[in-house]
Amino acid sequence: MSLPSEPVLAPAAEPADAVRPAEGRGPWRTALRRLRRNRSAMVSLAVLLAVAALTLLAPAYAGWLGIDPFRSNLAGTWVIDGQSVPVMEPSTTGLGLGVTPIGPTWDLGGYFLGADNQGRDVAARLLYGGRNSLVIAGSATVLCLILATLVGLVAGYMGGIVDTVLSRILDVLWAFPVYLLAISLSIVLLTSAFTIGPVTITAGSLLLPIGIIGVIYVPYVARPIRAQVLTLRQSEFVLAAIGLGLPTRRILRKDVLPNLLPTIIVFVPILLALAITTESALSYLSIGVQPPDASWGTIIQDGQTLLYSRPWVALAPGLAIVATVLALNVLGDAVRDALDARGHGR
């Protein structure tokens, strides 16, 4: 086979494959553009931002209402349509049995969603509860991602015995059904305060559910991260970096981690959704957030005994959880699509 022997050094302007006329648009900006174009993702993002904003306004709302939503108000009264009614209304029909908290007034001025069985304003508690639920979920997500990335990086990049030991530990942890593990840990840790070095964690502290939820989902995240690190470790640009004599820390920071970031980012909405549901379940079982603090899970428990008469007490936090988790799942899908490097071109 003979080839043309005189060198044809063509300059870059090959018509079939000219340098695309872009301003150096990197993969991150491309992903962001793709995300922005996804309408359901933007709607979900708006929902999430709205939820976050509302819950942040909890103290302001309670202050404006002039009530303390954590104080029992069993003997209190409220003005509805100019009339003063007791917050806990005794029955006046039949045998006169039973007491019903006032129902939703649909008036933002107070008891918008009605009162719970301690006479407290459900709407105000819903906002405070949302704050706790979101804070716990967010912190647990951050904690989980940090731990999982560390474990995944070390296990995947170093390989060998380190990888084997870490992977077996992850396997053991993952073998426990998640809720069973969370319940066991909660019951043990919630009974009394404990001290680690200079830090004392009281029994009702939010750090406990954060820590528990953050830790139990580490295997879920660490295994895919480790798998990707293993792949990246064998990829040719990492080999090239090793061949160039670049130090390991630099390779991890500049070659491995940036290519790991898409995977990590995709886990953020997934973990947030998981954390919210787990925290609600634990709080519903009385082993998550402890009274007097409220969370969406504790409010559902409050409303359980009012399902027949005042269903909104349980429905409202339930709907809040559904809306938030749904938005997170839709956003999570969209983020994963946007970051999909197996690009469907541009």
């Binding site: 990829s235 040719e236 640009f237 940036p258 490097a341």
Partner: peptide
């Protein structure tokens, strides 16, 4: 001693200029 790799799409870090 330096190496040039076979697959030009995987031998360059896609996230760096």
């Amino acid at each position: 001693v330096q190496m040039i790799f076979q697959d030009p799409s995987s031998s360059l870090n896609p996230r760096r200029r």
